[in-house]
């Protein structure tokens, strides 16, 4: 990031890509389009992480969100929207209230964000080793708790998705 103008252009391109894709997620009438736009949004957020020199988080975002969660969402879309056709699969209601809420939140966020001082950008150094140290040092208890949460979610999801029809299996 030597040239500030090129650097700013990269940022604005990433931000525009992310927000346009997020707009498709929120507004598209076809849920398959929404799902693929979610894919693009998560990709753009990973790019913003990389731009913030959070290299480990960018890779984790790609692996967990782009590679995992959006594929899961696509599976759910394909498994549940077959009956009523993809073109009418993503209906909306209360549009007026939604638009008012969206504009109010965006305006409040804009006012709050522009009031924040710009801050001092820390040096762009690789973060993976430091995060690994933090995870097994200061954050070792939350780290272990999260592993238990993941195990519980795994077991719960398998139990839920397998379902039962009377009797026990």
């Amino acid at each position: 990031m030597t040239d500030p103008i090129v650097s700013a252009m990269v940022f604005y391109a990433l931000a525009a890509f992310t927000l346009v894709a997020a707009g498709f997620v929120a507004l598209s009438g076809n849920i398959v389009h929404s799902a693929f736009a979610l894919f693009a949004t998560l990709f753009g957020v990973a790019g913003l992480y990389a731009y913030l020199s959070a290299d480990l988080l960018a890779v984790v975002q790609m692996l967990v969100y782009v590679g995992g969660i959006s594929v899961l969402v696509l599976f759910a879309v394909m498994l549940t929207s077959g009956l009523d056709g993809p073109l009418t699969s993503n209906p909306t209601f209360r549009l007026g209230g939604g638009i008012v809420l969206m504009l109010a939140v965006a305006a409040a966020a804009f006012v709050a964000a522009t009031a924040v001082p710009s801050g001092v950008e820390s040096a762009a150094v690789p973060t993976t080793a430091a995060i690994g140290d933090a995870l097994l040092g200061a954050y070792v208890l939350p780290f272990e708790v999260v592993s238990v949460v993941l195990l519980a979610a795994l077991v719960g999801a398998v139990t839920l998705a397998r379902g039962y029809k009377g009797g026990h299996r």
Binding site: A8, A22, T92, M102, A106, A113, V116
Partner: peptide
Amino acid sequence: TIGLPQYLVVSGVLLALGLFAIVTRKN
């Protein structure tokens, strides 16, 4: 120059779009 406010604006718009989807979607 890209500072903290630019990121907060992007994140705020993302939040607003997500809330819009949560409030208006039926699926």
